[in-house]
Write a protein that binds this DNA or RNA. Sequence first.
RNA 1: GUGGCCGUAGCUCAGCUGGUAGAGCCCCUGACUGUGACUCAGGUUGUCGUGGGUUCGAGCCCCAUCGGCCACCCCA
Length: 429
Amino acid sequence: MAKIQAIRGMNDVLPTQTPAWHYLEQVMRDLLAAYAYQEIRFPVVEQTQLFKRSIGEVTDIVEKEMYTFEDRNGDSLSLRPEGTACCVRAAEQHGLLYNQTQKLWYMGPMYRHERPQKGRYRQFYQMGVEAFGMSGIDIEAEMLMLSQDLWQRLGIADVLTLEINNLGNPEDRKRYGETLKEYLLDHREALDEDSQRRLEKNVLRILDSKSPQTQEILKQAPQLPDHISADSAAGFQQLLEILTQAGIPYQVNNSLVRGLDYYNGVVFEWTTDKLGAQSAVCSGGRYDGLSKQLGGTATPGVGFALGMERMILLLEELDRLPVGISRTVDLYICVIGEGVRQQALILAGEIRRKIPALRVLTHCGGGKYNSQLKKAFASGAQCALILEGEAAQTEIKLRVLDDSGETSTVGVESAFDSLSGLFDLEQFD
RNA sequence: GUGGCCGUAGCUCAGCUGGUAGAGCCCCUGACUGUGACUCAGGUUGUCGUGGGUUCGAGCCCCAUCGGCCACCCCA
């Protein structure tokens, strides 16, 4: 029988890696709680239409990266390639957007059929933040401050840079799109293939085309900042001022457009040069038209998503993971001889009841003194209880697992007291 | 989707111009040590990613396929 292996680009997270994930998730949860954002969860599968209508028909994501399949009843379903559309759908469906504002976050796997690469996987995890019902630039400012706060808590602020742009309000964007299209139609033949296709449904994307020839043509093109209404431009300036005051360095990039069609207003991207080709670790912006586009009532929205794998890669690369997060055992109980097996299990249970947060590993499966002690050290535990004998013991050994080799013999009854003396119990409250 | 490199024991890798496989680490046993050590003695592990082909014979050649890494592209 041939061995079955994981699907390409879909990774197992092994026990050696889960501590890093827990750490990252915990820092995020704490941060989001500090900003009073609430968690929302929604399904991994949605109607294909949801993504076609939000992300855009002619985007790469919808055109060639979605996992789309037919349900048994013939409906076209897709694994979610991103979270914003799902979040809007869920919020709208349950009346969360009716006459109220929301500050939400989510975390979970997304799916995109791309060629796997460092920092790019077919199943990847995103943490996303979305705010609904707020149209000022204060919410953009808060989100950027929140993300900056996260980088600081993780200790990676020094390797990330913020690129930011203003696409103007939806009318600005539409008007500019038409003007740009008109200009580019005159140079149609000189554009690269992709840009020619985008001319029809996705003109703005041409702005960040990598083709040198296309970029040459764009030099003479009508410029985006010239087509932005005064109030939108003023708001953008205010935002930039807040960023300056908050000590967040930024770089205005007028060709930053984003690959998802639903954006308008402020868009941004946090990038790094530490992850090879995958430079974007977090990005987002305003999407005021999205909820209406999905058939709901018009509700302003702002949000961003960040790639969890890329965060972890970055933390590992820069060695910014706190020491000690991998330790999973505090107390190791060595069980030498079948006679003390039962006593050891019962004793472990009593200790756990008395100190619920203490992580107690009872050695199972037998083995000699030497090898069990070796495992006790390898486990990272601070201390080991050693039960040895052919029958239940009244005295057991307590060994501190450091170089001192300090070992004492204690009565079973007083084992708990001895442990209390060893561990700083407050840390387990 | 395109291109380059790669796929040999749990891990890191070696394997000359094709003659059916090794090393280190780890792990286990024993000896010595009242003991995570050291040293010594011994031991387990692989359908050489998978499926075909060429050949008297393939880990080494050819084709296909799956997977990994990197870049393009795209994005988180």
